[in-house]
């Protein structure tokens, strides 16, 4: 995606990461075998890098490149195209606020501003305690629940400014509230692993 027009911030240097675990490498092999051509497993493999390293690290991309016979640049070109691949560590909880029109009409933009204020964090910046990263996102396909706030990709719908603030208080206190549907959000590395579909059949 084009990056111009979105905020570019100079943040702390991206930390180095150790080699991927034997477990992750085995999972990658499994994914590569699932498709007629191994390269199809690239997005799932990047999710596995994120699951182990907390973000799509340079070291991880290199290892993926080696497995697929692609250069680091080719891997990076793909990784940077997709917003769910993070280039630096994120907080335990990724707060994604939808501000597209149906949510905006219901106060989405106000909620987004209020959250940033309460956390003292700018867009895509992580709070000093490492707990939260907040981002503004596009329509989450849940406009009937506008305004929508996701925590690690689980929906909290019809939120208000107050509800959003009490949600972060709960998370801070270690209580994860029930989302609108499905299970309570899991910690981000587990979420990334799930997104790789490595546990899916066949």
């Amino acid at each position: 995606m084009t990056s111009r027009g979105t905020q570019v911030r100079v943040a702390s240097p991206v930390p180095a990461r150790p080699p991927l675990s034997v477990d992750t490498l085995a999972a990658m092999q499994k994914l590569m075998g699932r498709y007629p051509r191994p390269r199809s497993a690239l997005l799932p493999m990047l999710y596995l890098v994120q699951a182990e390293h907390g973000f799509v690290s340079r070291e991880g991309m290199k290892e993926v490149g080696k497995l697929l016979g692609l250069s680091a640049a080719e891997i990076a070109a793909v990784a940077t195209f997709y917003t769910m691949f993070k280039r630096r560590p994120c907080g335990t909880w990724l707060l994604s606020v939808c501000t597209n029109v149906s949510c905006d009409l219901a106060g989405g933009t106000k909620i987004y501003r209020r959250l940033k204020e309460a956390l003292g964090a700018e867009t895509e910046e992580t709070t000093a305690d490492g707990l939260f990263t907040v981002e503004e996102v596009e329509c989450l396909g849940a406009c009937d629940g506008a305004p929508v706030l996701q925590v690690n990709y689980e929906n909290y719908e019809h939120v208000t400014e107050d509800l959003a603030l009490s949600l972060i208080e709960s998370l801070r206190a270690g209580n994860v509230p029930q989302p609108t549907r499905g299970e309570r959000p899991k910690e981000s590395n587990a979420v990334s692993r799930r997104l790789s579909s490595v546990e899916a059949k066949p």
Binding site: M1, R34, Y35, R37, R39, S40, A41, L42, L43, P44, L46, Y47, L68, A77, V78, F81, Y82, T83, M84, F85, E138, L195, S196, S197, A200, P202
Partner: peptide
């Protein structure tokens, strides 16, 4: 028949069918 679940990674354009196929082949969408 095998049905394989493949998750996208955040890019609206991957809904366009040929971009989707590119993405499914492990490329930029």
């Amino acid at each position: 028949l095998d049905v394989i679940l493949h998750r996208g990674a955040g890019a609206y354009i991957c809904g366009e069918e040929t971009a989707l196929l590119e993405s499914l082949e492990g490329k930029r969408g």
